[in-house]
């Protein structure tokens, strides 16, 4: 599993596909699939710079005049900056905490033998299947009791609990494959259990941890149900709720909705293009194997 052998099969794979016909077919499929994934997105982009009147005349025309002012209007007319900041705050905090807490639990479950190990694992994991709608009301009551209702901190706590099972599941699988020898050696070198976690498990588990980070981030960034119930103050809305209320305020204004959606999506896409190599390398290093 050293780097050279990882690159090997790929190069040979390239040599393995000599037939021109196969190549052409592959290219066609790949092209078609690319259109399928980013086509809708480009369509959205063209609509975002056209007025609704222009769009309803022809939904697929290339914009003649670029109505950038729609972006300005959408930005000024709604609180996208606030929504964006709120989302970022809640999601980043929740992702950091849940990943650390989840990693600690996953490590204990993957490494140590103790009575009830599998029980704890099953308990933590089983909550992954619970339909979220119904913890919703009880969670709501708990948050109200602690004065955390309609607060970003309360939402953060809920988000941590939402992503915990997935995090434990992903990391436990990876951590349990770290060879025991490493731990034995570390122990002999005098590392304590907690040191081992921070100095060995976390660095070695980085590929899996970054996968967990990404997954948690994506899911929470787009979370909708809990946000709509737990946050009522427009100043505290997260992005998905913001987009929806924006849609509600522009009921038939397709051009404006498209502009709003673009505003909400572009920063994520940009960040992704910038970081994609790192993210995908993290995932490619493999966690869900």
């Amino acid at each position: 599993m050293s780097p050279p052998s990882m690159m090997g099969p790929r190069d040979r794979g390239a040599v393995q596909m000599p037939r021109l016909l196969g190549r052409a077919a592959l290219a066609a499929v790949i092209l078609a699939y690319t259109v399928y994934t980013i086509g809708p997105f480009l369509w959205l982009a063209t609509m975002s710079v056209r007025t609704t009147e222009e769009i309803s005349r022809d939904h697929y025309a290339w914009p003649k005049t670029f109505h950038w002012e729609q972006f300005h209007q959408a930005w000024v007319g709604s609180n996208f900056a606030t929504y964006f900041w709120n989302s970022a705050l809640v999601v980043v905090a929740a992702v950091m905490v849940v990943t650390l807490v989840g990693a600690a639990a996953a490590h204990a479950l993957a490494r140590y033998r103790f009575r009830g190990n599998r029980l704890v694992y099953a308990v933590l994991f089983s909550s992954i299947v619970f339909p979220p709608q119904i913890t919703l009301i009880s969670l709501y009551q708990i948050l109200v009791g602690y004065n955390l209702y309609n607060s970003l901190f309360g939402l953060t706590l809920v988000y941590i609990s939402l992503q915990l099972p997935l995090t434990v599941y992903l990391l436990e699988g990876f951590f349990s494959r770290i060879p025991q020898d490493l731990f034995d050696a570390a122990k002999i070198d005098g590392y304590g259990d907690i040191e081992i976690f921070f100095r060995i498990v976390l660095p070695i588990g980085m590929p899996a941890i970054s996968t967990a980070l990404i997954l948690n981030f994506i899911q929470l960034w787009n979370e909708f149900l809990f946000a709509v119930v737990l946050i009522t103050d427009p100043e505290k809305r997260t992005l998905p709720i913001g987009i929806r209320s924006f849609m509600g305020e522009n009921f038939q204004d397709i051009g404006m909705i498209a502009a709003g959606v673009m505003i909400s999506v572009v920063p994520v896409i940009l960040a992704y293009i910038f970081f994609s190599e790192k993210l995908i390398r993290g995932m490619t290093a493999g966690a869900v194997k």
């Binding site: 009551q141 109200v144 119930v229 209320s245 305020e249």
Partner: peptide, 19 residues
């Protein structure tokens, strides 16, 4: 606050229960 009707009902329903 102006809130779309569906969201408003959802929020009101959970909000009244807890005062």
């Amino acid at each position: 606050n102006f809130i779309p009707k569906a969201d408003l009902y959802t929020q009101a329903k959970s909000a009244v229960r807890t005062g």
